[in-house]
Design a binder for these strands. Structure first.
Lengths: 328, 328
DNA sequence: ATGAAAGCGCTAACAT
DNA sequence: ATGTTAGCGCTTTCAT
């Protein structure tokens, strides 16, 4: 079924059918409108979006490139993106890059061929290189920073990591901790650096010394959390630990358990992210929630603004929230 | 940049450019081939896939409709699908239905307009209704059963749930359990029914009576697991529980903990699915792993067979695997 | 070894 | 209020 066949069946031109289908029927008589709609219904006609896209040069499709949907952070982000896109009549193509530049580039090529209207891209490590050479496709970077191209339309969504870390550490202090450790990542990117700054600021404000043997920086993994807690415990004493993300917190808790240290009575643990499993841990994790779903939503809102030519260099910083549970 | 511009720059026809770009260059002289390729490279030309799709009536795109990417089961499935699709030059459009028929239908309409070459659809509950009226688009159902249409191309991927449940229960028996409970869902679908059958078969084989007060059927949730374990504990005694999925197992463990029952010494717990969090629980969950990622892969293989007209009613049953960890 | 031209299904400017 | 028509960028048949 094509618009042409519908037109024949209705004894009208394709133009008329097109107008009716697309609601541009101001000047169409009620009679023909009804007649056409009826035939469309009867024949189960579905417009060919490909042909339409070719003509109007819009696909109402966006691409999202994330490292891995199986990672809870990114699946939530993807859900936020998908919901927001669907609500606005957009369809989303999902790409998993595993943080590999080669995969990213391959996907970007594919998305360009598919003529997506825009791309949302994210990565935990903020690459410095400029691997993304995209012609005129609007781009939104989530939690990521790359050098701006000449005059590409770019948007950025980030989270106030410094404030989040500050709130976490402050919370420990307010709950009586004075010997506060930190376990986080040693990545050289802004989110990681900001989490350290927030931790230090909170200690400074309360006149607590920053001691290097209470700080362990490695990776955002359970293993690093475990290693970090063991090392800190061996070298010094703590009554609270701020963990750079929830996985680290889970690892740290495991290490403390092995030493029969009670949480939160003896040592309080606070994480960052609020991934889904955190609430099911034992004890349930107190943590700093990142508005992940909302980041997804905001990134499509921003992307669509860019697509519709409203601005060309947008930026938005979202705030975190302390979620109080059992570990601190 | 279009193929036409490239043709002009190279002083050849669009037909020649098209042939070179698509590798159909058997009869093209090396000289012109090189000339064209060089210009393509210089100009950074990217073919317009939309125009191509309109012409060849293939989009190299498939749609996947799942309830929710944030659910670990489905994110893993989506990853399997995406990887397998990418490997074969296909792009995937992701849709979250929340198990709502209205959303499914809306997405199916969208996917039809986008002229996807095929659709993969899945749901935890096997609907009996025939909501899916898709014209000629090949369809693969994952873990789901709907009545076959007239002569639609359909594939089905399922897991041998009965055998999985049998293995789980058998394992408990082999490890000394004689009073074995079951907590699962009361959904009226094949996977759920099969899990019950597998449990009963294992008990039968070992001449253990099936006792209704050791069985609790509700939902596939942590809460149901918690409720189920409490109820069973109140009414009877058990030394092992087969849980219909891992969430239930997590809830059951919580209930046992509250009664200071040691796992696995006093009661052994085995789950089903092997979702990601299971390995991080305390104790780590012994469970029956479903080959979720593989289901995703198999479903695109099957879908592409259908698209390429190899068969029109395919079926594949995958097997489960016992993962031994700390809870049983 | 290369090119001319039709046509995929649609939209929209313009004509009537 | 409705119709004519060009053209979006590409592939492919058929000619040469």
């Amino acid at each position: 079924m094509t618009i042409k066949k519908i037109a024949q069946l209705a004894n009208v031109s394709t133009a008329t059918v097109s107008k009716v289908i697309n609601g541009k029927d101001k000047y169409i008589s009620e009679a023909t409108k009804l007649k056409i709609l009826k035939i469309v219904e009867q024949e189960g006609y579905v417009p060919n979006g490909i042909a339409k896209s070719l003509k109007i040069k819009k696909t109402k499709t966006i691409g999202i490139i994330i490292p891995d949907v199986m990672n809870l952070f990114f699946s939530e982000l993807a859900r936020g993106v998908e919901d927001a896109a669907e609500k606005r009549g957009y369809t989303v193509i999902l790409c998993n890059s595993d943080n590999k530049e080669s995969k990213e580039e391959k996907y970007i090529q594919m998305l360009q061929e598919k003529k997506v209207d825009g791309i949302i891209i994210t990565a935990p490590e903020n690459r410095t290189h400029q691997s993304i050479k995209i012609q005129d496709i609007p781009l939104v970077l989530v939690d990521r920073d790359i050098g701006t191209q000449t005059d590409q339309k770019i948007g950025r969504i980030t989270v106030d990591n410094r404030d989040g870390a500050y709130k976490a550490t402050k919370y420990l202090i307010e709950n009586g901790c004075r010997e506060i450790g930190m376990i986080s990542s040693n990545y050289k990117n802004k989110p990681s650096a900001d989490r350290i700054k927030g931790y230090e600021k909170a200690l400074d404000e309360s006149n607590i010394n920053i001691e290097q043997n209470k700080i362990f920086l490695e990776n955002y993994t359970i293993e690093s959390g475990y290693n970090g807690a063991k090392k800190i415990l061996k070298e010094t004493e703590v009554d609270g630990i701020f963990c750079g993300n929830d996985l680290i917190a889970i690892g740290a808790i495991k290490a403390l358990r092995e030493k029969d240290i009670r949480i939160p009575e003896q040592v309080k643990i606070i994480g960052f992210d609020d991934i889904q499993i955190s609430q099911y841990m034992d004890p349930p994790l107190t943590t700093i929630r990142q508005p992940i779903y909302q980041m997804g939503e905001e990134s499509v809102k921003m992307l669509i603004s860019l697509i519709k030519n409203k601005g060309k260099n947008l930026e938005k910083v979202l705030q975190t929230k302390l979620i109080q549970r059992g570990s601190a």
